[in-house]
């Protein structure tokens, strides 16, 4: 870290120039080193009881997601039923963390999840492109919160970010945070469109400085979604941010995480980078849909001793 102190941080967002100076003053990411470290941590062997523990934790961290134009109330209700009891055959299987839907489906999800303790997350701010006027983004956010969402997944303005208008990105996030009220705010960086790890680090800091409760990798709508090295950079950012300010921010990789093996690699990365404070559904989430079935199949394999097949789990 640079020699920035917590008191300096209040001034870095005072002007575009100050914010740019701060963000460009962050230490650069060693690309080869980050990729090598992520790959190395991915080779850890997690077996038997540790694996069972990791699988249950990963299930509790899943934001079960459906973000399709073809979503219907029936499909969302079915997904909510799955969120409550992921494996109907096994009552010891924990529920997932949240359901993640489009704003129009929030009332359906809130009603179906009532009393379960499972959060309702809604994407907002002209997801997935974020290319809409600010008033529309704020209205989108307020509507989702009013409909019952207690977590909002917003997209940052990548157009402004890549053009170097960092303060605009910051102010937009801060305004959306304001519009969220009591709801948690997850800031989607869309790392697949940010080109470099340095940009990922800068965007992470903007998201945290602006008040985001979570920083999230991707919308899942562009070809390159969550990767281990990107998540590593983001985990380093939340770790440094807590060291500096005392405020803990969560991380949510989303998109492209489909297997239990992948999920466990992420958990190892969390433990080794940010520390075990983050090994909790309040501080680390997986944005996924197909991942859950693979976790359930692996869980079934561990409890029954025979390989499970997809015929015995729901098609989502």
């Amino acid at each position: 870290m640079t020699a920035t102190t917590a008191s300096d941080l209040s001034s870095v967002t005072s002007s575009d120039a100050a914010l740019r100076a701060f963000l460009h003053g962050l230490p650069g990411v060693d690309q080869v080193g980050a990729e090598q470290r992520a790959a190395m941590l991915g080779t850890r062997s997690i077996k038997t009881t540790a694996k069972a523990w990791a699988i249950d934790l990963a299930i509790r961290m899943v934001d079960l997601t459906t973000l399709e134009g073809a979503d219907t109330p029936g499909k969302v209700r079915a997904l909510c039923a799955k969120a409550r009891r992921p494996d109907p055959a096994d009552p010891t299987c924990p529920p997932v963390a949240a359901i993640c839907v489009y704003p129009a489906m929030v009332p359906v999800a809130t009603e179906a999840l009532a009393g379960s303790g499972i959060h309702t997350a809604s994407v907002a701010t002209a997801f997935p492109s974020g290319q809409a006027p600010l008033e529309i983004k704020l209205a989108d956010t307020k509507a989702a919160v009013a409909a019952g969402a207690d977590e909002i997944d917003m997209v940052i303005n990548r157009g402004a970010f890549l053009a170097g208008r960092y303060l605009e990105v910051f102010e937009e996030i801060a305004a959306v945070k304001q519009a969220c009220g009591p709801a948690h705010l997850k800031v989607i960086l869309e790392t697949g469109e940010l080109s470099t790890y340095d940009n990922v680090r800068r965007a992470s800091w903007i998201g945290m400085l602006a008040g985001g409760d979570f920083i999230k990798t991707s919308t899942g709508k562009v070809p390159v979604a969550a990767t281990l090295p990107v998540t590593l950079v983001m985990l380093e950012a939340v770790r440094d941010f807590r060291d500096l300010t005392g405020r803990q921010v969560g991380v949510k990789p989303a998109g492209g995480i489909r297997t239990t093996k992948d999920a466990i690699k992420y958990l190892v990365l969390v433990n080794e980078t940010a520390g075990d404070d983050w090994l909790d559904p309040d501080w680390f989430r997986f944005g996924a849909s197909t991942l859950l079935n693979d976790l359930l199949m692996q869980r079934t394999k561990l409890t029954t001793g025979v390989y499970a097949g997809p015929d015995y789990f729901t098609l989502d």
Binding site: G305, V306, Y307, A308, G309, P310, D311, Y312
Partner: peptide, 9 residues
């Protein structure tokens, strides 16, 4: 035995 017990066979 693993093949015989596999639920996807």
């Amino acid at each position: 035995p693993w093949l015989a017990a596999h639920m996807d066979v």
